[in-house]
């Protein structure tokens, strides 16, 4: 089976080996990484982490809007690695995850995928 290396940039660069079939949350917790999580089906954002390098498949997530995706966030409970990746984990990675909607509105293309409209160029 194809294995990928996961590097945790905010855990002193610790590395773990994961496969591309199972979600990252399950595989990293199984190797002793202490990670936040909630719903475990991709809907609640509690387990969000920031992808610093590499590629993942998170087609099953339904929690992130397009701005959060553009900022590199991934939903670990459903995301799978498709290459070697580097992640920043935990709430330390959430600096751009939350915003006050009265202070900083989303543009139409930054909404969640089901209601977003294409960016006007």
């Amino acid at each position: 089976m194809m294995l990928h290396r996961v590097t945790l940039s905010n855990r002193n660069g610790a590395t773990y080996s994961v496969n591309g079939r199972r979600p990252l949350l399950e595989q990293l917790r199984g190797q002793g990484v202490d990670l936040p999580y909630g719903c475990e089906y991709g809907g609640c954002i509690t387990c969000a982490a920031k992808l610093v390098a590499g590629n993942i498949d998170q087609r099953r997530q339904i929690a992130l809007n397009n701005r959060q995706i553009a900022n590199g966030y991934v939903i670990l409970c459903v995301a799978r690695a498709t290459s070697d990746i580097t992640l920043e984990i935990g709430v330390e990675s959430h600096d751009n995850l939350y915003r006050n909607p009265f202070l900083d509105p989303l543009k139409p293309h930054e909404l969640k995928a089901d209601i977003a409209t294409p960016e006007e160029l």
């Binding site: 609640c44 929690a63 992130l64 909607p101 509105p105 209601i115």
Partner: peptide, 18 residues
């Protein structure tokens, strides 16, 4: 829906009847 409110409040989704 849980999938709407659990990740946070996107004010814009009110207008989209979510």
């Amino acid at each position: 829906a849980p999938n709407t409110f659990m990740p946070g409040f996107d004010l814009e989704e009110v207008g989209h009847l979510k």
